[in-house]
Each structure stands twice: as structure tokens, then as C-alpha cells.
Amino acid sequence: MSDQEAKPSTEDLGDKKEGEYIKLKVIGQDSSEIHFKVKMTTHLKKLKESYCQRQGVPMNSLRFLFEGQRIADNHTPKELGMEEEDVIEVYQEQTGGHSTV
């Protein structure tokens, strides 16, 4: 019986991991920090939209990076291997420009 009891508790931990929340720091170019608590399985588009709304800027005017890689709207913290207190960097999107060649 103890084996049966242990097995469901392991499964519960697996389920808990799926719905687990982590805190992420979003740091802007001006070094301002906003902290977000997100589920591991939530699409990061929600975090990006919330950040842009707080900053009063359109979402397409900023780019969000985690460990140097651009974050897509459909990425989740779990897919990117994010952990508690990880940092997302935000930069002004640069458009235009010309070749110097």
C-alpha cells in the first residue's frame, strides 16, 4: 500500500510543476525593474502585453530577450528553461537604418 501512496504523490508533484508559478524580473533599458509572477505554462505574450500596457507603449515597439534570445509570443517559461528570479531584458525595437557599404 505504501507504494501506491507514494506513486500518486509523485504524480501530484509532476502536476504541481506544470502549474507552478515563478517570479520573473523584467528590466528596461533605463534599468527599471518590474516583477511578474507567471505560470510555467503561460505564453509569455501575456507578460509582454502587461509590461507594455504599464509602460504605455505599443508591444511592437519593444523586444524582449532572455539569455540573449528573442522571446516569441508563444514561448512559455518552461520551454525556455526559466527559473525563479530570472531576468528578461527589454530593448527599444530598432527599425529602419541603412547599409554603410
Score class of each variant (00 low, 15 high):
P77K: 04
K78S: 15
K45Y: 05
M40W: 00
E79V: 15
V101H: 06
Y51V: 06
K23L: 13
I34W: 00
V38M: 15
V57S: 05
R63C: 06
T100D: 07
L65R: 02
T76K: 01
R54Y: 02
K37S: 00
Q92R: 13
Q4H: 11
F64V: 02
V26Y: 02
I22F: 05
K37F: 03
I22H: 05
Y91P: 02
K23V: 13
F64T: 02
Q69P: 07
S50Q: 15
F36D: 04
Q29E: 01
T42S: 09
R54D: 04
E85Y: 14
M1V: 10
M1H: 07
G97Q: 00
G14S: 08
T95V: 15
T76L: 01
D15E: 12
P8K: 05
T41K: 05
T42E: 04
Q94Y: 12
V87S: 11
M40T: 13
G96Y: 00
E83K: 15
Q29I: 15
E11L: 14
E85R: 14
E33A: 06
T76E: 00
P8D: 01
I71M: 02
M59L: 07
K7I: 14
Y91L: 08
L13V: 12
M59G: 05
N74W: 07
L24I: 07
H43A: 13
I22W: 01
T41A: 10
G68A: 00
S50C: 15
K48D: 01
H75F: 05
N60F: 06
K25I: 08
L80K: 04
Q69A: 14
T100V: 09
I71E: 01
Q29Y: 07
T41R: 04
E85Q: 11
S61Q: 07
Y21S: 12
Q29N: 15
L47F: 03
E5M: 14
L13M: 08
F64A: 04
H43D: 12
Q92F: 03
E93V: 08
D73H: 05
T10S: 11
E89I: 13
Q69C: 11
A72H: 09
T10L: 13
E11K: 12
G68C: 04
L13F: 11
D30K: 05
S32A: 14
D3Q: 09
I22E: 00
V87P: 02
T100L: 09
E5H: 07
M59Q: 02
K39I: 02
